[in-house]
Design a binder for these strands. Structure first.
Length: 565
RNA sequence: GCACCCGUAGCUUAAUGGAUAGAGCACUUGGCUACGGACCAAGGGGUUGGGGGUUCGACUCCCUCCGGGUGCGCCA
């Protein structure tokens, strides 16, 4: 919602040539300048005049109606002092009416989306680095749905390939393999393959038999990957990530569509068998401009397929679902690979999906390393965070059962990790600081949850049924009241930016800002013991509106709001 | 070597090319007879990696150098 539309309308009425999209409202740098500011720069071209001149002229000539109490031109800016009571009333009323839809601009209406994310290799317990994909993907799915899209979330299960072959070999030697042992088994398998060429060769042989359809080998692959996937999903489930479809890579080994791709490549003379008998694509024939990354191997000499070959079939399969948007979340290490895949698909007249990239999560000590044990496992983090949180909850929510306390602690733990990861722009490396992520103070998910808990505490104590329509007598005009309401009004714009940029980081920063504004209001403006009944009710409604907005924002980040904590 | 991403306060980070670069952590000082102190108020701390350029105006765009991340023919 935009509470400033009356201003826009007045301006456009006086200057019909103005494009309303050029009117961008912002907060003035200092509160005594006014309640809302409007920059004149974008109007300079259409009105053929200098911004400061425009500001002065507009302030003198345009009648802005009852919402605006005062207009002051300040250089190239126009600063408005508003009838705050009226403006806040409009904002609160909108939120209380739209409730859990508040903030949606419904821009994805009637559009279907296929979104693939997470797709962790089934060989180990997910660490927080891998989980960045799941958190970004899951939040993106929530945002797309919130904006009206019909979203289908896909998870590609890499249930074959050399790594699984080696894992099967190690698994054979163990009595009963469980999920916890797989991380170790995987490391061991790789070390052995490096040291012992025969062992490595056995892995490749297993792969060939798998692709040829040997039922026993297929059973073994299935057993190992199922075990891994099940364990991984249990951890991802704690994060709140949900998937609609699991697509197994092994399904795409002998896909008929790959023949068509080969034909198209041959027609452009872009595929050849190299000196080591591999089937290779020469991407330079498809317009790839560099020497590095020019070759893309489809099949090994022994006839088994490479990952990319199967992925071509999988990508076409997703394309055939006919969605309006086809999006995948990828680590930045896949950038070149995705570009290569795109060239191949487009050469055969297919459309590659839109990629959303994210950079790696690093530790303060440097890169995460499985072999050196320098990883933070997601489950370990959640366990530690929940243990810390439950100690606090036991103190502060004594009337609750142990189960309820544990459930709250788990929500706090998830908020801590999801917020710590999602608030950073995805193209930047996240420096993951275990201590900071476990502290729950400052710019954190639990801080926002705490703000919500306080609001709910007020609402509980008020015991009023809060009407969704604010009364005509709505005496909110204090600075803190205005600031928090104005921030509430910015929600839709923040979500639209997140949607367009496919970047949910802004939602986290927005929620943080709103929570901070509310806390200032909370300390300055007593609600339950306000001077008048009208003021008390208006403030309760403002509280309700802030809570609703924070809930909606946190929902998009996959963070639950506990009633108490 | 080539390509892509990043570099902002001691640390972690924010800013559709626009007003005085905004927060959190840490540090200093103050605030609980409380609508919940997982909090608030105030303070110190910045040549936005270096150097050029474009622009009325650059953290933002272009060039270059330095530093970090990522990728570059039988891993997935």
């Amino acid at each position: 919602m935009n509470p400033y539309t009356p201003i826009t309308e007045s301006l456009c009425k006086h200057y019909p040539e103005i494009d309303p999209a050029d009117l961008v409202y912002s907060k003035p740098p200092s509160a005594d300048l006014g309640d809302v500011a409007l920059a004149m720069f974008p109007l300079a071209r259409t009105l053929k005049s200098a911004p400061p001149k425009i500001a002065a002229e507009v302030a003198e000539k345009v009648d802005f109606g009852p919402l605006v109490q005062e207009v002051t031109p300040t250089g190239p800016y126009l600063n408005f002092k508003l009838n705050r009571s009226q403006a806040i009333r409009n904002i609160v009323s909108t939120v209380l009416t739209e409730q859990s839809d508040y903030g949606s601009s419904d821009c994805g209406k009637d559009q279907r989306v296929v979104l693939e994310h997470t797709s962790i290799n089934p060989n180990a317990s997910p660490h927080v680095g891998r989980a960045r994909n799941a958190m970004i993907g899951d939040s993106l799915a929530r945002l797309l749905r919130f904006q009206g899209h019909d979203v289908e979330v896909h998870y590609y299960v890499n249930d074959m390939g050399r790594q699984i072959g080696l894992l099967v070999l190690v698994a054979e030697e163990l009595e009963d393999l469980n999920f916890e042992q797989i991380l170790e088994a995987y490391v061991e398998a790789n070390q052995r393959a490096e040291a012992d060429p025969d062992f490595a060769e056995k892995g490749y042989e297993l792969l060939v038999r798998m692709e040829e359809g040997d039922p026993e080998v297929q059973r073994q692959f299935r057993e190992v990957t199922d075990l891994c996937l099940k364990g991984q999903l249990a951890v991802l489930e704690r994060l709140g990530a949900r998937y609609d479809c699991f697509d197994r890579e092994s399904k795409y080994v002998r896909d008929a569509r790959l023949e068509k791709i080969q034909e198209a490549l041959r027609a452009k003379d872009a595929v050849f068998v190299d000196e080591e008998e591999r089937l290779v694509v020469d991407l330079s024939k498809l317009g790839y401009p560099h020497e590095q990354g020019r070759y893309f191997v489809l099949m090994r000499a022994n006839g088994s397929s490479m990952y990319g070959y199967r992925d071509i079939a999988y990508t076409m399969d997703k394309e055939s679902l006919g969605a309006d948007l086809n999006i995948m979340v990828l680590g930045e290490d896949h950038k070149l690979y995705a570009q290569q895949l795109q060239l191949i698909l487009e050469s055969a007249g297919h459309k590659a999906p839109e990629s959303v990239y994210y950079a790696y999560i690093l530790l303060k000590e440097g890169k995460m390393s499985t072999r050196q044990g320098k990883v933070v496992l997601l489950s370990d983090f959640l366990d530690q965070a929940a243990a810390l949180a439950v100690a606090r909850v036991e103190e502060q929510c004594r009337d609750l059962s142990a189960e309820e306390q544990q459930a709250i602690a788990e929500k706090v733990a998830v908020a801590a990790i999801r917020f710590a990861v999602l608030r950073v722009n995805p193209n930047k490396n996240v420096i993951f600081d275990m201590e900071a992520a476990l502290s729950f103070t400052g710019d954190t998910g639990p801080y926002i949850q705490y703000c919500c808990a306080r609001i709910q505490s007020i609402l509980r104590k008020a015991e009023d049924k809060i009407p969704t329509t604010p009364s005509a007598d709505f005496p909110l005009e204090a600075q803190a009241e205005w600031q928090v309401a104005a921030t509430v009004a910015e929600f839709e714009e923040a979500l639209l930016a997140a949607y367009e940029q496919r970047n949910v980081a802004g939602i986290g920063l927005y929620a943080l800002e709103l929570a901070r504004q509310f806390t200032t209001f909370y300390h300055e403006c007593p609600v339950l013991i306000a001077e008048s009944e009208a003021l008390r009710l208006a403030r309760l409604q403002l509280c309700q509106a802030v809570l609703q907005t924070l809930r909606n924002a946190l929902y998009l980040l996959g963070i639950d709001v506990p009633e108490q904590m």
